[in-house]
Amino acid sequence: AGLEKQLAIELKVKQGAENMIQTYSNGSTKDRKLLLTAQQMLQDSKTKIDIIRMQLRRALQ
C-alpha cells in the first residue's frame, strides 16, 4: 500500500511541475529560473515514478 501511495503522490508532483512549466514558459526572463526549477522537478519526479513502478513490479512477482 505504501508504494501505491508514493506513486500517487509523485504523479501529482509530476502534474504540478508540468503545469508550472506551462505557466513559466511564456513568461518573462525572471521566470526563467522558475522554469528551470520546474523542469528539474519534472525530471526528478519522472525518475522517482520509474523507480516506484519497478519496486511495485518486483513486489508483485
Results as ranks from 00 to 15, higher is better:
residue 30 K to D: 02
residue 48 K to I: 01
residue 59 A to G: 11
residue 40 Q to Y: 00
residue 57 R to N: 03
residue 58 R to S: 07
residue 30 K to T: 06
residue 9 I to N: 09
residue 53 R to D: 00
residue 54 M to P: 06
residue 61 Q to F: 07
residue 16 G to T: 14
residue 27 G to K: 13
residue 29 T to V: 05
residue 47 T to M: 10
residue 40 Q to M: 09
residue 57 R to W: 12
residue 20 M to P: 07
residue 56 L to E: 10
residue 39 Q to Y: 05
residue 42 L to R: 03
residue 40 Q to R: 14
residue 11 L to N: 08
residue 28 S to K: 13
residue 48 K to A: 02
residue 13 V to N: 14
residue 50 D to I: 00
residue 11 L to Q: 10
residue 59 A to K: 14
residue 16 G to C: 07
residue 22 Q to E: 12
residue 19 N to S: 09
residue 45 S to I: 15
residue 11 L to A: 10
residue 43 Q to C: 02
residue 18 E to V: 11
residue 37 T to K: 15
residue 5 K to S: 08
residue 42 L to M: 05
residue 50 D to C: 08
residue 51 I to V: 13
residue 21 I to L: 10
residue 21 I to M: 07
residue 6 Q to V: 09
residue 39 Q to E: 02
residue 58 R to K: 12
residue 27 G to W: 02
residue 14 K to R: 06
residue 11 L to E: 11
residue 7 L to M: 11
residue 21 I to K: 10
residue 7 L to K: 13
residue 12 K to Q: 06
residue 32 R to K: 15
residue 23 T to R: 14
residue 57 R to I: 04
residue 60 L to T: 12
residue 38 A to F: 12
residue 40 Q to P: 01
residue 33 K to P: 02
residue 29 T to A: 11
residue 35 L to V: 06
residue 29 T to Y: 05
residue 44 D to N: 13
residue 39 Q to W: 12
residue 36 L to Y: 09
residue 37 T to V: 10
residue 3 L to M: 09
residue 21 I to P: 12
residue 24 Y to T: 13
residue 6 Q to S: 11
residue 25 S to D: 11
residue 24 Y to V: 09
residue 30 K to P: 02
residue 26 N to V: 07
residue 22 Q to M: 07
residue 56 L to P: 08
residue 3 L to T: 10
residue 37 T to L: 12
residue 25 S to N: 12
residue 38 A to L: 13
residue 12 K to P: 03
residue 28 S to W: 03
residue 12 K to L: 01
residue 41 M to T: 04
residue 56 L to V: 09
residue 10 E to M: 05
residue 12 K to Y: 03
residue 18 E to W: 02
residue 34 L to R: 09
residue 6 Q to Y: 10
residue 46 K to V: 06
residue 20 M to V: 05
residue 61 Q to C: 14
residue 36 L to V: 09
residue 35 L to I: 05
residue 36 L to C: 04
residue 48 K to P: 00
residue 42 L to D: 00
residue 24 Y to F: 05
residue 22 Q to H: 07
residue 58 R to M: 05
residue 24 Y to L: 13
residue 6 Q to D: 06
residue 41 M to C: 05
residue 7 L to P: 04
residue 31 D to N: 14
residue 28 S to R: 10
residue 3 L to R: 14
residue 18 E to G: 05
residue 14 K to M: 06
residue 42 L to W: 13
residue 7 L to D: 12
residue 35 L to P: 00
residue 29 T to D: 07
residue 40 Q to I: 01
residue 20 M to L: 06
residue 1 A to E: 15
residue 44 D to H: 15
residue 48 K to D: 00
residue 27 G to I: 08
residue 60 L to D: 02
residue 4 E to S: 05
residue 52 I to L: 11
residue 52 I to V: 05
residue 31 D to V: 15
residue 26 N to E: 09
residue 21 I to N: 13
residue 31 D to S: 15
residue 53 R to L: 04
residue 55 Q to D: 07
residue 5 K to C: 05
residue 1 A to C: 11
residue 25 S to L: 06
residue 44 D to G: 11
residue 26 N to Y: 00
residue 25 S to F: 02
residue 53 R to A: 05
residue 16 G to I: 07
residue 9 I to A: 13
residue 37 T to D: 07
residue 19 N to I: 08
residue 60 L to Q: 13
residue 59 A to S: 11
residue 15 Q to R: 03
residue 56 L to W: 01
residue 52 I to N: 02
residue 26 N to D: 12
residue 8 A to L: 08
residue 22 Q to F: 04
residue 33 K to A: 05
residue 11 L to P: 12
residue 16 G to Q: 15
residue 43 Q to K: 14
residue 21 I to W: 11
residue 53 R to Y: 04
residue 61 Q to P: 02
residue 57 R to E: 02
residue 22 Q to S: 12
residue 37 T to Y: 08
residue 8 A to W: 03
residue 51 I to C: 13
residue 53 R to C: 07
residue 2 G to V: 09
residue 17 A to N: 06
residue 25 S to R: 13
residue 14 K to I: 03
residue 30 K to F: 04
residue 36 L to W: 08
residue 2 G to F: 10
residue 13 V to D: 02
residue 16 G to R: 15
residue 53 R to Q: 09
residue 39 Q to G: 01
residue 37 T to S: 12
residue 44 D to E: 11
residue 8 A to K: 13
residue 1 A to V: 08
residue 6 Q to P: 00
residue 17 A to C: 07
residue 11 L to K: 15
residue 21 I to E: 08
residue 40 Q to G: 03
residue 20 M to Q: 07
residue 22 Q to P: 07
residue 13 V to R: 15
residue 24 Y to H: 11
residue 51 I to S: 15
residue 30 K to V: 00
residue 24 Y to P: 13
residue 24 Y to A: 14
residue 15 Q to V: 06
residue 60 L to F: 02
residue 32 R to Q: 06
residue 26 N to F: 03
residue 2 G to E: 14
residue 18 E to A: 05
residue 1 A to P: 01
residue 41 M to Y: 01
residue 45 S to H: 01
residue 17 A to Q: 06
residue 36 L to G: 10
residue 29 T to Q: 04
residue 54 M to D: 07
residue 52 I to Q: 00
residue 55 Q to N: 07
residue 19 N to V: 10
residue 20 M to N: 03
residue 14 K to P: 02
residue 40 Q to C: 02
residue 54 M to C: 09
residue 47 T to R: 15
residue 27 G to F: 05
residue 37 T to I: 12
residue 8 A to V: 09
residue 9 I to V: 12
residue 28 S to F: 03
residue 39 Q to R: 15
residue 24 Y to I: 09
residue 6 Q to E: 11
residue 45 S to R: 00
residue 25 S to Y: 02
residue 58 R to E: 07
residue 32 R to F: 03
residue 17 A to E: 11
residue 23 T to A: 11
residue 6 Q to H: 05
residue 57 R to F: 03
residue 38 A to V: 10
residue 31 D to R: 15
residue 25 S to E: 10
residue 49 I to R: 00
residue 48 K to N: 06
residue 33 K to Q: 06
residue 35 L to Y: 06
residue 26 N to K: 13
residue 8 A to I: 07
residue 33 K to T: 11
residue 60 L to V: 06
residue 48 K to L: 03
residue 8 A to S: 12
residue 53 R to M: 11
residue 20 M to E: 07
residue 2 G to D: 15
residue 25 S to C: 04
residue 56 L to R: 03
residue 26 N to H: 12
residue 38 A to C: 13
residue 31 D to I: 15
residue 22 Q to T: 09
residue 31 D to E: 09
residue 55 Q to R: 14
residue 35 L to K: 09
residue 54 M to A: 14
residue 7 L to S: 07
residue 44 D to M: 08
residue 30 K to I: 07
residue 24 Y to C: 08
residue 10 E to D: 00
residue 45 S to F: 15
residue 5 K to Y: 07
residue 14 K to A: 06
residue 24 Y to Q: 12
residue 10 E to L: 07
residue 51 I to A: 15
residue 27 G to C: 06
residue 14 K to T: 11
residue 4 E to Q: 10
residue 30 K to Y: 02
residue 18 E to C: 02
residue 55 Q to A: 08
residue 51 I to M: 12
residue 28 S to T: 08
residue 35 L to W: 08
residue 28 S to G: 10
residue 28 S to A: 11
residue 28 S to V: 05
residue 42 L to C: 02
residue 38 A to D: 00
residue 40 Q to W: 00
residue 34 L to Q: 03
residue 44 D to C: 12
residue 46 K to N: 09
residue 24 Y to N: 15
residue 56 L to D: 03
residue 19 N to F: 05
residue 10 E to P: 07
residue 48 K to F: 05
residue 22 Q to A: 10
residue 42 L to P: 01
residue 3 L to D: 15
residue 9 I to W: 03
residue 52 I to D: 02
residue 9 I to H: 14
residue 20 M to C: 01
residue 43 Q to G: 01
residue 39 Q to L: 03
residue 50 D to N: 12
residue 29 T to E: 04
residue 44 D to A: 15
residue 4 E to Y: 08
residue 49 I to L: 10
residue 18 E to S: 06
residue 46 K to Y: 02
residue 11 L to W: 03
residue 8 A to C: 06
residue 54 M to V: 08
residue 25 S to P: 06
residue 18 E to R: 08
residue 43 Q to R: 14
residue 34 L to Y: 01
residue 56 L to A: 07
residue 4 E to N: 09
residue 51 I to R: 15
residue 3 L to A: 07
residue 31 D to T: 15
residue 41 M to N: 00
residue 51 I to N: 15
residue 50 D to T: 02
residue 52 I to K: 04
residue 8 A to Q: 12
residue 30 K to E: 02
residue 56 L to N: 01
residue 41 M to R: 04
residue 30 K to C: 02
residue 38 A to W: 08
residue 58 R to H: 05
residue 47 T to F: 00
residue 16 G to S: 14
residue 1 A to Q: 15
residue 42 L to Q: 00
residue 14 K to H: 07
residue 55 Q to F: 10
residue 27 G to H: 06
residue 58 R to V: 04
residue 47 T to A: 14
residue 58 R to F: 06
residue 7 L to V: 10
residue 29 T to C: 04
residue 2 G to C: 07
residue 30 K to Q: 02
residue 8 A to G: 06
residue 34 L to K: 12
residue 17 A to F: 07
residue 25 S to T: 11
residue 45 S to C: 15
residue 22 Q to W: 04
residue 9 I to R: 14
residue 50 D to A: 14
residue 23 T to S: 03
residue 3 L to K: 14
residue 47 T to I: 09
residue 45 S to K: 02
residue 39 Q to A: 03
residue 55 Q to W: 15
residue 54 M to Q: 14
residue 21 I to T: 13
residue 46 K to L: 08
residue 22 Q to G: 13
residue 3 L to V: 06
residue 43 Q to D: 06
residue 49 I to K: 03
residue 27 G to D: 09
residue 14 K to F: 09
residue 21 I to G: 14
residue 58 R to Q: 06
residue 59 A to W: 05
residue 55 Q to E: 04
residue 56 L to K: 04
residue 3 L to Q: 14
residue 6 Q to F: 08
residue 47 T to C: 06
residue 59 A to Q: 12
residue 48 K to R: 09
